[in-house]
Nucleic acid binder design. Sequence first.
DNA 1: GAAGTTATTGTAACCGATTACAATCAAAAA
DNA 2: TTTTTGATTGTAATCGGTTACAATAACTTC
Lengths: 333, 333
Amino acid sequence: MVSIKDVAQKANVSTATVSRVISKPEAVKEETSKKVLKAIQELNYQPNVLARQLRRLETKTILVIVPDITNTFFSKVLRGIESVAVSNGYKVILGDAGNDVEREEEYLNVLRQKQADGIVMLTARMETGVIEKFSVDYPLVLACEYIEGSTIPTVSIDNVSSARKATEYLIALGHEKIGTITGPLNVVLGKDRLKGYTQAMARHNLSVEPFLVQEGTFTFDSGYNMMMKFLALSNPPTAVFAANDEMAFGAVKAVKSRGLRVPEDVSVIGFDDIEFSAIFEPPLTTISQPTFEIGTKAMELLLKLMNEDEITRNQYILEDSLIERDSCTRNNA
Amino acid sequence: MVSIKDVAQKANVSTATVSRVISKPEAVKEETSKKVLKAIQELNYQPNVLARQLRRLETKTILVIVPDITNTFFSKVLRGIESVAVSNGYKVILGDAGNDVEREEEYLNVLRQKQADGIVMLTARMETGVIEKFSVDYPLVLACEYIEGSTIPTVSIDNVSSARKATEYLIALGHEKIGTITGPLNVVLGKDRLKGYTQAMARHNLSVEPFLVQEGTFTFDSGYNMMMKFLALSNPPTAVFAANDEMAFGAVKAVKSRGLRVPEDVSVIGFDDIEFSAIFEPPLTTISQPTFEIGTKAMELLLKLMNEDEITRNQYILEDSLIERDSCTRNNA
DNA sequence: GAAGTTATTGTAACCGATTACAATCAAAAA
DNA sequence: TTTTTGATTGTAATCGGTTACAATAACTTC
């Protein structure tokens, strides 16, 4: 292994000078610099980053935890994070929790052990106390998911109002019997999207009978199964709000499997606007989140946190938008 | 920051003893161990992993480079890699190249700078010489993609024979005028899948006229566009082999946009069997790669490489399988 | 009880960089 | 020419662990 000493020896200077050539070139004479650069070239020297990090007590690396890398929604947010990170000299490493809360928690050790300077979490399913406490000691930003009533810096959309918007869209189309397939109700996203649905129904004096609310798990299969439950009712809903696109796909599939059509027989609206929603048949009407912007904003916040800059605001709510495609239509019952 | 010294002081032992309690507990007396553990607890001590890594000159971390994290095919391989890695005490960090060859190459520096012990590359698009040279100095395994004629440890399927199989499936259904939408022909996967197609056609004495081969880019849009070209022919193919599923989706969409049906008017077969292929309409007939196994096998190979164990074989070819769904049917022209 | 073993702990060098501080050198000012 | 000043370079401490080796303690064996 060729180290800084070898370079110093070859160039006939001290290791301090070599170090300076690399990280503060203006402090060394042109001539010396050349000598050193030549030695570096000839030896094909690459500094050992660990040593630098140890000495500087910083890694210029941030960690992003995603609940499930398989979900393309998160990869887009990741792209946003990355773009800001690299342009500020930070490396991004990715921790995939594989939908396992424990693994999510384990990743926090990466910070505790000084292998990253900050963290962006696209999930917040572990115990609230743990995160809160952690964020006191380490730079942490939540994105997409969040914790109710917490002051941890957070970037997301307003899920309640987005869900309300989606539901009101169906109401505006004349639907009255509207079902919802929720996400898991032990995570905020699930809860808030249900809340938005309930609010919309209430505002328009539509009754939310218990059987109109089915709890899913954000998966295709759960969407399929819950829709099957709706269809088994003697008087099924004419429209359904699914709390994410995967479940919406499942719901549509279920409708079709019964020989019915979307949107003619049942309107379905989703949430997230993942890649596939436009390709799906029918193209899915859904709520689009500004994924890339969520990522960039989150990373900008994290940078401030790591620099110990003043943060004027902790919660950033970005604008979503409703993408009208072909999975919803007027109620003609 | 609480360091090993603080713990040593508090427990009234040397730092060496503390270190031993952590990494070689059997070498220290029960009583002392307890004292130290107590101090660790009380101070909430977490070892600085950088320091350990620097001293040991190993990171217990491997790097996985994916060409595009947005593609779910790769996330599945990643899961396989991960499962073997963590059960052997390795952390996995992910480098997303975002389809950019330069960034792919930059990630190699992570190894050169000693931030990871080994690397699995799910892409091999950079200059052959660079990879070859790199793999002499560092443990490297290729998975999915590969380099022709190279002896770098590689895990993949036999793309030529898989593509041949897919094409012969169409031939067996009575198709004679079969088109193919290839991947980019400057990457092996594109080339090999085309080769398989060509072989199949030749074996059955079917002529491959130039207009039957259209080069795509592995994207939905390119699949759509190339299919449009086919459909513009006075006598379009009755079946199409697309070199990956995304392009197959695009192709199907194009067929439908012309008011034609899949598979009745045109049969389409894909490659990869990504998540969405089963949901798509019609469910896509395609070649399924053993993604998880590719991942596990690759990681096992890498472990051997890092341990400098004997490697008996360098190329591992795993079995693919043809998944028959509903996008292909008998030629009834 | 002395000698020989083994178990346990401490001392200090080491991993490979960075950087405060000191030393040296060259150019400008007196 | 001497002094002052700023530019350039070197020396050595440091980051926080690990581990070879030495020292000491505890236990056997005769």
